[in-house]
């Protein structure tokens, strides 16, 4: 078994905070489903249906900007309280991270 890879260390859960920078891994695909007129996320044996807010957040995840940067953008765009926006998207991003849809940049 010369080609067996090295044993890996056990991975741990990523906790999403305001400072976290996230990206969609290569194998997770955010795309527009033209036939059904909606955005979808394609992942292993899953299809996720993000709403408009989620799509906007996901499009901003470039691995450069932190969750706080994105929350600030959105709170200005929608004239919504920053704290509310941050809480809302941290919850969503944590859930998607737990499901393997997002990873640390």
């Amino acid at each position: 078994m010369s080609e067996t890879s090295e044993p890996r260390s056990t991975p741990t859960r990523l906790i999403v905070t305001g400072e976290t920078k996230l990206v969609l891994p290569r194998h997770v695909k955010l795309r527009h489903d033209a036939g059904r007129g909606r955005w979808i996320i394609l992942a292993p044996e899953r299809v996720f249906n993000p709403d408009d807010t989620a799509v906007e957040v996901l499009k901003k995840l470039d691995g450069q900007r932190s969750v706080n940067d994105i929350a600030l953008d959105l709170s200005q765009e929608y004239q919504a309280p920053l704290e509310v926006v941050t809480d809302d998207i941290v919850t969503m991003l944590q859930d998607l991270t737990d499901k393997g849809v997002l990873v640390k940049a």
């Binding site: 044996e45 899953r46 299809v47 996720f48 249906n49 993000p50 809302d88 919850t91 969503m92 859930d95």
Partner: peptide
């Protein structure tokens, strides 16, 4: 239903 904004559909393969 995800906590917010994203719903999920698993593939009922097999």
């Amino acid at each position: 239903i995800a906590p917010t904004h994203v719903t999920e559909t698993a593939m009922p393969v097999c």
